[in-house]
């Protein structure tokens, strides 16, 4: 029965994807991509991948739409007209058709969903499942794999986020010579949603609750779905909500630029520093067992610290990107 729901939701997903590609109104495309993300999260959830679904939820619901709209404020509302020669069209169709048939052909050999004898369940997965409790002593296997067994990969991911943040900031955050703002422009910039009473009061009430939830996701990630990436996105959503309601200038007062830069670099540094500390204490890089006298306690400490590093970096990068867009749009 769950399979039927899954198939139906996947069909909706394909419809939405086609509509996004076809739509020439960019605002409609942004709204549809919001729906795409929601559908994606539901599909992940039905496949029992709660951690991934939570990431999709945190990024898709809170941050992605806001960033898309920030980009939209810098460009036009309509997709640019482009003409493709008929030959190019046929070539594109041919390439797409060939790729699609290859993928279909490959999928014929795929094992069924939930097949225990699938190759992916034969290699390291049984070892992870068997050793998470004795070695790391936490119930959430995903966190154990992500943070400890494959901690090196996750370190790479954090640096990818770090690099992406630097890339966006170096493209959008280039300092312009400050233009004198006229009255109406200053008004438009500062107004935000500050004069709308109901969103402001309700929204301001939500900010601490969202922050609290982010902290829960951050520090409870070993026991339930969650961890640094999700918590970082949720915390960034709380700050972005504050900036939307109170104005970008007040949001920047709350978390000034130097602090954001410190967060972006400091989180990644904390992660790498934990790895180095393990080396100095006589273990391998990112082998947390040496951090405390009891190996599993060391693992707990290590996971806590690296998840904190991930969370800080992700929060810093997302808020910096938001500010970079907002500042460009207000000029």
């Amino acid at each position: 029965m769950t399979l039927i729901f899954g198939v139906f939701l996947l069909i909706l997903l394909v419809i939405v994807a086609l509509a996004i590609v076809r739509s020439e109104d960019l605002f409609a495309a942004v709204m549809l991509s919001g729906i795409f993300s929601l559908l994606m999260a539901v599909n992940f959830f039905l496949l029992d991948a709660a951690d991934v679904a939570l990431t999709e939820a945190a990024v898709g619901a809170g941050v992605a739409t806001v960033l898309f709209l920030g980009a939209l404020a810098l460009t036009g509302k309509e997709e640019a007209r482009h003409t493709v020669s008929p030959g190019g069209r046929w070539l594109a169709l041919g390439v797409s058709f060939a790729t699609a048939s290859l993928l279909f052909y490959a999928s014929l050999e795929n094992p069924h969903i939930g097949d225990g004898s699938a190759p992916v369940h034969q290699h390291v997965a049984p070892w992870y499942l068997a050793n998470t409790l004795p070695l790391i002593d936490i119930p959430n296997v995903v966190t154990a794999v992500l943070g400890s067994f494959r901690g090196f990969d996750t370190l790479g991911e954090v640096f990818v986020v770090f690099t992406a943040g630097i890339g966006v900031m170096s493209i959008l955050g280039v300092r312009h010579s400050l233009v004198e703002l006229s009255g109406a422009e200053l008004d438009a910039r500062q107004r935000s949603l500050r004069h709308h009473l109901i969103p402001r009061i309700v929204g301001r009430g939500m900010v601490p609750l969202i922050m609290l939830f982010a902290l829960y996701v951050q520090f409870h990630g070993e026991y339930s779905p969650g961890g640094g990436f999700q918590a970082g996105a949720i915390a960034a959503a709380a700050i972005i909500l504050y900036s939307l309601l109170e104005g970008d200038d007040r949001g920047r007062e709350l978390l000034p630029e130097w602090l954001l830069r410190l967060m972006v670099a400091g989180g990644a540094l904390l992660y790498g520093g934990v790895g180095l500390a393990c080396v100095l204490l006589g273990g391998n890089f990112l082998d947390y067992s040496v951090l405390a006298t009891v190996p599993s306690a060391g693992q707990h400490l290590g996971l806590l610290l690296i998840e904190l590093g991930v969370g800080i970096t992700v929060t810093g990068v997302l808020i910096s990107v938001f500010h970079a867009f907002a500042r460009r749009a207000s000029r």
Partner: peptide, 15 residues
């Protein structure tokens, strides 16, 4: 998580 942060997108649209 969705219930808490889903409305941020709508606020962004309004702004």
């Amino acid at each position: 998580a969705y219930a808490a942060i889903n409305f941020i997108g709508v606020l962004a649209v309004l702004q």
